[in-house]
Design a protein around this nucleic acid. Structure first.
Lengths: 325, 325
DNA sequence: CCGGTTTCTGAAACCGGTTACATCCGACGG
DNA sequence: CCGTCGGATGTAACCGGTTTCAGAAACCGG
C-alpha cells in the first residue's frame, strides 16, 4: 500500500497539516521541521494522491477532448496538437472518441466530471448537452463545429479557401461539379459548399451536384466514383476530405480514366498521402487547431469566462496534379 | 454548484447511505423509498461525482497509454485501437505523449495516479520507473517494447517479415543494402535488422550498412538519400518505417534516380501514403496492437496478475513497385 | 402475545488530501 | 515582570462519495 500523508506525519512526528505545508513550499515552517518532514517523505517515497488533492482542491489538472473518430490523419493531428500544448500547461489529457455511439452523451458527462475543461469537436454530442454543461460552469471550447451562445470556438477558414478552390477548378474549364459529402454530416462542409456554390453561380453554364456518403473514407470515395462511372462523369469531383478524394482517384485510375485530362479531383486537409498522390487540396493547420483550442481552454479555466472568442485559422489552397498542371 | 449526495438525501428525507443504495440498484430498499429517492435524483439532476466515487472505491475506471509521439499514422492508429477497446470496456482513456521531454518520468508517475492501469509504448520512460510501478502493484502492459520481467507485453512480429523482406530484396538482385534507422532508437529495429542480417549472410557477396537518423520522418529520409547521392548509391534502402522510406523516395525522385530501376526502397508499417507511393513495406496491424493491449490490460486489472503473457501479432510483407515488378 | 428473523434504514468511519482557525510558544517593548 | 505580538504547529472541518455495522420496524410461527 502506498504511504498516505498520515503515514508521513506519523513517521516525522508532526501533523498532516505540517506535511502538507512542507509539500507546498509553504512558509512559516521552521527549518528543522521542514528537514524532518522532507526526510520522512523521502524515506517513505511519498507522493500525494492525485485523487485526494483533486477532491480537496476541487480541480483536476486535467483537460479533455472529444472527437468523432481518430481514424484518418486529420483528427490524429488535431489531437496531437492539443495534447502537446495541454501537457506543456501541466495538464493531463483525457480523450474520448464517440464513434457515433449512442452512449456518447453519457460518456461525455462522465468525462466532464474528470476534468477542468473540455474541447468538443465536430458532430459528437447534442447541443443541449453542451449547453447544460456550459450552464453548469464547465469551461468549453468548440472546435471545427458551429458556434454556441457564449462558448469560445476555434475553426479553420472554410469560405476563403473554398472560393479559391472553386475559382481554380472553374479556371481549369470544369463546369459540371460534383461535391462529394453531405453538408449535414460535417459542420464545415456547409460553409465550403456554400462558398463553392456562390463562386460557381457567377460562371454561366455551371452545374453543381452534391452526393452524400455514409462516412468520409477511401471506400466511400471509391463507391462514389464507381457510381459516377456507370453514368456520366462530371468535370470535377470536389471532395469533403483527402481520403474521399484519394478513394475517388483510385477508382477512376482503376477504370482507366485520365485525371486531370478527363476529370479533376480535389480534396481537403492536405494529409501526407495527398502529397504522394499529387492531390490538389486545401491545407488545414491541423496541429494549430488543436493547440489553439488547448490554449483557449486553459485561459477560460484559469482566467474565468470573459466575452467568448471565436478564432478562425487560415487555410491555403495547394494545387497539385489532379486539377491540371 | 452541482448537487451532492447529501443534497439528494435531504431533499428525499433519507440518509446518504440510502441514496447510495438506490444509485447502485442495491436490494433491500423498499419500493416507496426507492421511488422517493429516484424522484429527488431526477429533480436535482444529481450525478454522483466521479472523484468521490474513485476515492471511496479506490479505483478510477480509467486507463492510460504512454507513447513517444502522435505524429505519423502509426501511433495514431495504435492509440485509436486502444481507445476504442478501452471505451467499450467502460473506461476513460488518458493519453500522454512524452516527446522526449525530460519531465516524462514525472508525468508518467502523475498519470499512474489517475488510472487503474497503463500501456507503455516504445522508448518513453526508463525501465527502472516501470519496474517501480510494477512493484507497487500498478497493472502494466508493454507495447512494441522490450519485455520486462513479470510484465505482460504485446508486439508485432518483426523477425518473420523482416526475413521475407530481406529474401525478397535479395531475390531482386540487390546486394548492397542500406538499413536506414539506428536500432538503438527503436526497440523493434534491433530485431528487424538482425533478421535482415541473418538472411543477407546466407547470400555471398552481400554487404549491409546501417545509417542512423535523429528521428523517423520524411525529412530524415530525404537527408539520408541526399547523403547517399553524394557518394555511391546502395542497391536498396531498407527503411525503419514508411515515412523515412517516402522521404528517401522523394529525394531520389528529385535527383532523377530510377526506383526500382537503379535502387530499391522499402518501408515498414504500411501507412496510407505508402499505397499511393507504391511503396513496398510490411503491414503492421496497428489498431489490433492497441486493442490487444487494452484487452490484456483490462484482464490484468480485473483478474489480477497471473503468469505474464507475451502476445505477438502477425505482420505481412506487401510488395509494391518500389522493389521491382 | 412473545421471541426470533428478516428487511430496511441511518449513523459513522473511511478514502487522502487542503486549509481555516485555534493554540502554544518565545521574544519584545513598556 | 507582564501584556502583546507573531511565528510555528496542531485540530478539525471539509471535499463527495461507499460501506460496515447496528438498530428499528415489520413479520413470522408457536
Amino acid at each position: 500500500m502506498r504511504p498516505t500523508i498520515r503515514d508521513v506525519a506519523r513517521h516525522a512526528g508532526v501533523s498532516i497539516a505540517t506535511v502538507s505545508r512542507v509539500m507546498h513550499q509553504h512558509e512559516n515552517v521552521s527549518e528543522a521541521t521542514r528537514e524532518r518532514v522532507a526526510r520522512a517523505v523521502a524515506e517513505l517515497e511519498f507522493t500525494p494522491s492525485r485523487l485526494g488533492r483533486s477532491l480537496a482542491e476541487r480541480r483536476h489538472a486535467a483537460n479533455a477532448i472529444v472527437f468523432p473518430d481518430l481514424s484518418g490523419p486529420y483528427y490524429a493531428e488535431v489531437v496531437l496538437g492539443y495534447e502537446s500544448v495541454a501537457a506543456d500547461l501541466g495538464r493531463s489529457v483525457l480523450i474520448l472518441s464517440t464513434h457515433g455511439r449512442a452512449a456518447a452523451p453519457t460518456m461525455v458527462e462522465e468525462m466532464a466530471d474528470r476534468c477542468d475543461g473540455m474541447v468538443v469537436m465536430g458532430r459528437t454530442v447534442p447541443d443541449a448537452l453542451l449547453e447544460r454543461l456550459h450552464a453548469r460552469g464547465m469551461p468549453l471550447v468548440l472546435l471545427a463545429r458551429p458556434q454556441l451562445a457564449g462558448i469560445d470556438s476555434v475553426k479553420a477558414d472554410n469560405t476563403g479557401s473554398a472560393e479559391q478552390l472553386a475559382a481554380h477548378v472553374l479556371a481549369q474549364g470544369a463546369r459540371r461539379l460534383t461535391l462529394v459529402g453531405d453538408p449535414a454530416m460535417a459542420p464545415d462542409l456547409g460553409e465550403r459548399w456554400a462558398a463553392v456554390g456562390r463562386v460557381a453561380a457567377e460562371q454561366a453554364g455551371t452545374t453543381v451536384t452534391t452526393v452524400a456518403t455514409p462516412v468520409f473514407d477511401e471506400a466511400a470515395g471509391r463507391a462514389v466514383a464507381r457510381t459516377a462511372l456507370a453514368g456520366t462523369l462530371p468535370d470535377a469531383f470536389v471532395c469533403a476530405n483527402d481520403e474521399v478524394a484519394l478513394g475517388v482517384l483510385s477508382a477512376l485510375g482503376a477504370a482507366g480514366v485520365d485525371v486531370p485530362g478527363q476529370v479533376l479531383v480535389t480534396g481537403w486537409d492536405d494529409i501526407m498521402a495527398a502529397r504522394y498522390a499529387g492531390l490538389t487540396t486545401v491545407r488545414q493547420p491541423m496541429r494549430e487547431l488543436g493547440g489553439t483550442a488547448a490554449r483557449l481552454l486553459d485561459e477560460v479555466i484559469t482566467a474565468g469566462r470573459a466575452e467568448p472568442r471565436h478564432v478562425v485559422l487560415p487555410t491555403e489552397l495547394v494545387v497539385r496534379t489532379t486539377s491540371g498542371a
